[in-house]
Nucleic acid binder design. Sequence first.
DNA 1: GCGACAG
DNA 2: ATCTTGTCGC
Length: 256
Amino acid sequence: MMTQMPSPPPEELVKQWESEQKRLRQQVVEEDTEDWQRSPDFSGLERVGGVDLSFIKGDEVSACAQLVVLSYPDLKILYEDSHMVTLTAPYVSGFLAFRETPFLLEALQRLKISQPTLMPQVVFVDGNGLFHYREFGLACHLGVLSGLPCVGVAKNLLQVQGVLKDEEHQSQIAALQKGGDSFPLTAASGKVLGKALRSCDKSFKPVYVSVGHKISLGTAVRLTHSCCRHRVPEPIRQADVRSREYLRIHFPATDT
DNA sequence: GCGACAG
DNA sequence: ATCTTGTCGC
C-alpha cells in the first residue's frame, strides 16, 4: 500500500478560517438560557441530541453524518438519521468545525422539516467548545450557527492556552474519586475554559467538557454526567455506534 | 530539530 | 477519524 503525504493546509484558507472564528466567537452565549437548565433535576428537559461523523478507513472524504435524539432522562432513541456526505475541507487541528459543521447543520435541517417536534433541546458534540485555541471549537460553531444549546465533549485533552497534560494533570485525574467529580482546565489568563470530568464510576479516563453555546459550564458538566452510562455521554455514543453500523452495512470491507 | 496535533 | 483479537468481567 503506497503512503500518501498529508497535503499542507493552504495558509490563506487557514487565515480566513481564523477570522471567521474570531467573528463568530462574539456570538457565543456562555450562560444558561433555558428554564430546564436551572432545575436541579433538569425538569423540563425531554430531548437530548448527539452528532458525529464516521469515516471509511481508506477514504478521506466519504463519511456518514449522524444525528440522534434521545429521550431524557430515559436516554431512549427517539430519532435517528444516517446520511452519507462528501467532505470538502481537510482536517486541521483547531479548525475541525469547517470540516464537519455544514453536514451537522444539514442533519438538523432535515429533522426540522420532517419531525420538528423532535428537535433536541441541547446537542452533545464530539469535540471541544470554548476549550479551544481561540475559544471557538466545533461545539461553539454548531451552537452559534444552529442557535441550539450545545455541549462540547472531547475524549482527548487538547493542550491549549497553557493547559498541559503533564504529571500535574495526571495527578489531578488520579484524584477524581467517583463519577461526577471534576477539575477545572484553566487558561494562562485565569479563565476556566472547561473541566475534566470522570463521567461515570467505571471510567477512569476523564472526558473534557466545555461550553458550546447557551449553557453554563457548571450546567454542561452536570448534564454530561447525567447522560453517561459509559465514559462517553449516551447521545454521542449512540451517534458513533449507529454511524459506524451504517458504514459497516452499506460499505462492507473489501479484501484484496 | 523536536513535540504537539479535538475528529 | 481508522488500523485491530482476544480477553476479563458483569
